[in-house]
Amino acid sequence: MSGLVLSHISKGFKSGKVLEDVSLDVNAGEIVAIVGPSGTGKTVLLRIIAGLQEPDGGTVAIDGVDMTEAAPESRGVGMAFQNFALFPHFNAFDNIASPLTARHTPSDTLKEKVGAVARMLKIDHVLGHAPRELSNGQKQRTALARALVAQPKVLLLDDPLRNVDAKLRYEMRMELPRLLRSYNAAVIYVTQDYKEAMALGDRIAVLRGGRIEQWASPRDVYAAPASVEVAKLFGDPTINLLPATVAQGGIQLLGRAVPTPQASGAVIAGLRPEHLTVSRSEIANGIPCELDAVMPVNVRSVLYMRGPAGEEILATVGESEAAKFGREHRQVWVDFAPENVLLFDAASGARIGHPAH
């Protein structure tokens, strides 16, 4: 297979297991985003792929060849870090050229390749600058150029946009997919930012507690999260998680009967804020709630409400709609479509109806 295949990777330290039975594949030309909270093993996984650490179990294969015990320099892997990790005594040109220099690449070829990747990343005008003379955006592009210049088979990006400003981060989210696919490498992009993962990843692997909890397209991870924890990782404002009671044919949610797939035992209902309709006047089937606050967020606003039994509820509305509510406390009515309700098992947190459940 062309690309990267990880099979049953495990790794532990004195403090305990960091990775346990991690398997995934990344095709050449594909971007896989790995998302997870801090300390869940994302960087350790990258270091194992790069050959900087050995797994306790499992294999790393690149283009169908087992590379588990191969030296880092023989794997054809490029890597860029969130802290840039540039050599301070090298200028930008020499930093980018360092992987080629280590391979004793002829001078003419080296200059040609460095120039080509620098032009593509729009940093050819600062190649003579030392890292201290570069902006964070230029440092980030220099680190990315260094990872790309040797045309690696596998490219590992460890949260490379974390330390750049919001404008550049937005621009790079648009530019990176085109740039990365042009190199036809198997790309793993690690991030804690769900928006970045959804913008860049062809597929997303959610890593929690050293295990892959969900492995799917961005759309499926958001619309059909495997668990409560996955649901909370994706979405801003966060998903509403509300207690529900199982009833014949469905559940009782916020005092309303809602037809749902078969469920039993204690359950939690999930509703995305954008799936709620909020009205200032009473509507059929509407649930009376108290509007506590309206919080503007860019071109939309978040409504903070309390349900019939004091449940905290969030909804999002457009700017013009938010203006109608004002800022004072008032009663409103909330509605939602039953098909937008996600059900989770209260004990395990797994989504009811998910294949893993």
Rank of each mutant, 00 (worst) to 15 (best):
R173Y: 09
F336H: 08
D108M: 07
K122L: 14
I48D: 01
S182Q: 05
E229S: 15
Q53S: 15
M79W: 03
A92P: 15
A61F: 00
K11V: 15
D158W: 03
R119W: 04
L100C: 11
R146T: 08
E20W: 10
R146V: 07
V221W: 08
G51R: 03
V206A: 10
A350Y: 11
A226K: 02
L241I: 13
L121R: 02
L207Y: 00
K42P: 02
D202C: 11
V22Q: 01
V317A: 02
K111M: 12
D202H: 14
L200N: 04
A116W: 02
R256W: 00
A223C: 13
H89Y: 00
T316C: 09
Q53W: 07
A350F: 13
P355L: 14
A85N: 04
A247H: 12
R103E: 10
R103K: 12
Y183N: 06
I352A: 08
I9N: 00
F234W: 09
F234K: 08
M67W: 03
T43G: 09
D165Q: 11
A33G: 09
A28K: 05
M172S: 10
G58E: 03
V297C: 15
N136V: 11
E133L: 15
I287M: 05
K17Y: 08
G201E: 01
V35S: 01
M305F: 07
D292S: 11
F93E: 07
D94M: 07
L45A: 08
A199H: 05
E196N: 10
V297W: 12
A309N: 14
L253V: 15
V126A: 11
E171M: 10
I352W: 06
A166F: 03
Q331Y: 02
A197H: 05
A263E: 01
T43N: 02
P288H: 00
V149F: 02
G58Q: 01
W215I: 15
G78H: 09
V334R: 00
Q262M: 12
V332P: 00
N83G: 15
L24W: 02
R211H: 10
A346L: 02
L342K: 04
L303N: 06
G265I: 14
R219M: 11
E133C: 12
P355W: 10
E339D: 08
Q214V: 10
L253S: 11
R181L: 04
I239N: 07
D21V: 01
V267G: 09
K167P: 08
S2F: 06
P72L: 07
E54K: 13
L144N: 07
Q248F: 09
E133P: 14
E30G: 05
M67Q: 06
A185H: 04
R173L: 14
V77Y: 03
A284I: 11
L271T: 10
T245W: 04
Q138N: 14
G307S: 07
K139A: 13
F336D: 04
A185T: 03
F90P: 00
M67A: 04
G51A: 10
A50S: 06
P37A: 14
W333I: 11
N27R: 14
Y183C: 08
P225A: 04
L303Q: 05
L168P: 00
L110I: 13
G249P: 05
I204T: 10
D236K: 10
D63L: 02
A50R: 05
K113Q: 15
A70L: 04
V341G: 08
V77S: 06
A143F: 07
Q214D: 09
Q192N: 13
V267I: 14
